[in-house]
């Protein structure tokens, strides 16, 4: 009976622990998704009906991509106003373009022009307001998932700002209303300016835990992982070795 209680307790504990999987999904790790992956080269229509591809834009200057819709009664307006306010200050080195892109297929070029006027940014060359026909592919490539709420006739969505460098890679994502410091880090990252938190791979780095392949965008296990397991493996070999050695001597 006692054995059964203990085993049930252990089994129950294990299943309780598997809730960790759920927590990982709930946790605020959305900003880490799609980092260092290439953004979809969407066709966009910017001010005055000029058609471009996203790559034409980011090849010229890095892009900060803000995803909004004009009929938004929630986060979009404060999000853009704060972005505008933060960018009024010289917060970081490096050039960039701010692309405000609608993810709502109902939005037209005129709607976006009106939005730029409302924000007083219609003559600001750093800011572009655009629509796209490739929104689904673009959303997928940046990990953005707006959900239509028919009761409120509104999208349920994050206030997402995506940093794209001149090679088209997503270097950083910011979700929500963020401060100038976060924005400065994003501008540094799209301009490939060293960020002191993590070192970029280089040829002198021999024992990486993971090797990143920029062509496939995937990580493969590296020699460093073996190093991580080494102390435990050597300790076990030492225990078995000592055990064998003292037994042999006794025989």
């Amino acid at each position: 009976m006692f054995k059964r209680i203990i085993l049930s307790f252990i089994a129950g504990s294990f299943f309780y622990c598997t809730a960790a999987f759920g927590q990982v999904n709930q946790a605020n790790w959305k900003e880490d998704a799609n980092i260092y992956e290439k953004v979809c080269d969407a066709s966009i229509t910017i001010n005055k009906g000029v058609n471009l591809t996203l790559s034409q834009l980011y090849n010229e200057k890095p892009v900060l991509l803000a995803l909004i819709f004009t009929r938004c009664s929630g986060i979009c307006n404060p999000f853009l106003l704060q972005l505008k306010e933060n960018l009024q200050f010289k917060i970081s080195a490096g050039e960039f373009t701010v692309l405000v892109l609608s993810f709502d297929p109902r939005d037209t070029r005129e709607d976006m022009e009106l939005l730029s006027e409302r924000l007083g940014l219609e003559n600001n060359e750093q800011w572009l307001f655009a629509t796209t026909g490739d929104i689904e592919k673009l959303n997928q490539s940046v990990g953005f998932n707006p959900v239509w709420d028919s009761t409120r006739s509104q999208y349920d969505h994050d206030a997402l700002l995506v940093g794209i460098n001149k090679d088209g890679y997503i270097t950083k994502k910011l979700i929500g209303l963020r401060n100038r410091q976060d924005l400065a880090q994003m501008i540094n990252s799209v301009n490939n300016i060293f960020s002191p938190s993590y070192r970029l791979p280089n040829k002198n780095l021999l024992f990486s835990c993971f090797n990143y392949n920029p062509e496939t965008g995937k990580n493969t296990p590296g020699l460093g992982l073996l190093f991580l397991a080494l102390p435990a493996i050597v300790a076990l070999l030492l225990v078995f070795g000592i055990s064998y050695s003292v037994r042999q001597k006794q025989i």
Binding site: R199, N204, L205, F207, S208, G222, F227, L230, V234
Partner: peptide, 26 residues
């Protein structure tokens, strides 16, 4: 043994004059 390995990696970088760097994650 993990500490010994860690210190060996630190020493290797310290005395390598930049020809060897460690993986921060490791």
């Amino acid at each position: 043994l993990g500490a010994v390995l860690l210190l060996a990696m630190y020493s290797a970088e310290y005395f390598s004059n930049g020809t060897f760097v460690n993986d921060a994650l490791l």
